[in-house]
Each structure stands twice: as C-alpha cells, then as structure tokens.
C-alpha cells in the first residue's frame, strides 16, 4: 500500500503580483515502510513539500493522499495521529518555558492517550534519554538531547509516518550519527515510513532507499540510492550534486 501519494503538487507564497511558486508540479509516491529522501539546495522547495503535507502551508493545489486519506484544506485530528514531523532546529522546536514532561504529556493528552505517566517513561527510554531528563527545561539540554525530545514528542501518538525536516543539520557529526542511528532503530521498531529532507546526500543516502532531487521547485530526477552510488544518475544537476558531496578522505 502507498503511504503517501502526491500528484501535481503546486505550492506558492504571496498573492497577486508577489505570488512566488515554491513547488511546481511535483508528483511522487512513498510505499508503506519506505524511506524517501528529498535533496536539493536551499530554496529548492524541499522543506515546503513537507510543510504542505503537514498542513502548515495552506496555499497549495494538486492531489495529496496520505495514509489513505485525501487531504483538503484542513487536517483532521486522525491525520495528526498518523503523521508527525521533526523540525530542523532543535533550539527552536521546543517551547522555552516548558519541561520535557509538559511537552510530552500535552502531546499525549491531545491525542487522548491513556496512562500518560507510564508512557512518558517508555518514550524517553525509546529515544535514549533516561527518566532523569523528564523534568528538565530545554535550556538544560544539549542540541542532541533536544532533538531526542522532539523525536519523542513526534512519537507520542504512535504515528505511522514521520516527516523529517533536516533533523540533523544543526548538530555535530558525532551527535548526528547518534540521531541517525536512533532514527534507524525507531523505524524498525515502530514500522515507520519516513520522508526526509536534507541538503546532505550522505545523510539521505544513509537513511533512505529512494531519493528525489529537487531544483527550483521541480523534481529533476527520482532514483534509488543504489543507483546513485553506482553513479547512474542521468540528470547533469544530480551528477553535479554528487560530485560536490563525495568528499570522503578514505
């Protein structure tokens, strides 16, 4: 079954003469349990697609079907129980005046989860934070720990699809490795479907099976990561990105 089915998606910002197209005629499908990557430079519209799916950008046209539900102007509560998002900057995605406990219990409360106390402990264990972190404020946490809390929040309602918006680009490489490993484990445990946006081909290649390469709001190519590794990219822009990204010393 397809988890996400996007057809002819256009997204724009502004009205009238100032209307700027951010995404132009994009179509792609993501199967259940698959991990799909969106790659492109800043301003290519890759994050905008995620935001449009999540319902944070109301100005779009086209067809979007997520987990069997055709999306309209508004998202239902059931939609948010199936689809959650993790943001780029862990310093901006946690409310500065709320403890980890408050963040998680509110998320669960909104989804009507029973037995909140026990679940919070379980969630914190899942994302590799102990119970000692439960009553801390964001300013008492490091960047990696904050991102773990953000991931825990997105898992609070047991969603089946996670939208990942550059979840590691603000972190140090060693912390990035920990978070990527965590995402790999969670995907296996919770049978999650990922759509991940990143500017780093290495990161996307690590976590995803298929990649959509974006430029100026359009898909230039969709290809399997294995093909990318074997340098089978057809489009010159994809090849250019590949050349810039291969920077290993070994």
């Amino acid at each position: 079954m397809t988890a996400i089915d996007i057809r002819n998606l256009d997204v724009w910002f502004g009205v009238g003469a100032e209307r700027a197209m951010a995404v132009k005629d994009v179509s792609f499908q993501v199967a259940d349990g698959e991990s799909f990557g969106l790659v492109g430079e800043s301003g290519s519209g890759k994050s905008t697609i995620l935001r449009a799916i999540a319902g944070l950008v109301p100005t779009w046209s086209g067809e979007m079907k997520v987990a069997g539900e055709a999306l309209g102007a508004r998202r239902s509560k059931a939609f948010y129980r199936k689809v959650q998002m993790v943001f780029q900057d862990p310093y901006a995605s946690l409310h500065p005046r709320q403890t980890v406990d408050r963040v998680l219990s509110e998320a669960m409360g909104l989804h009507g989860v029973q037995d909140i106390d026990k679940r919070i402990g379980q969630l914190l264990d899942d994302v590799g934070l102990g119970a000692g972190f439960r009553f801390r404020y964001p300013h008492q946490l490091s960047g990696g720990q904050r991102q773990r809390v953000a991931i825990a929040r997105s898992l609070a309602c047991d969603p089946s699809i996670l939208l990942l918006d550059e979840p590691t680009s603000a972190l140090d490489v060693s912390v990035q490795a920990e978070i990527l490993n965590l995402l790999t484990d969670l995907r296996e445990e919770h049978k999650l479907t990922y759509v991940m946006v990143s500017h780093d081909l290495g990161v996307v290649g690590h976590l995803c099976e298929r990649i959509g390469v974006m430029k100026e709001g359009r898909f230039v190519e969709v290809l399997a990561v294995d093909d990318m590794r074997r340098r089978k990219a057809k489009d010159p822009y994809t090849r250019h990105l590949l050349d810039s990204s291969i920077n290993s010393v070994r």
Partner: peptide, 11 residues
C-alpha cells in the same frame, strides 16, 4: 517551530 509542532499535535 514549537508552535508548529503543537499545531501538528492537533491543538
């Protein structure tokens, strides 16, 4: 983002 996040929880 934290307001977006809570919106995505259905608040």
């Amino acid at each position: 983002d934290y307001i977006h996040a809570i919106r995505l929880q259905g608040a």
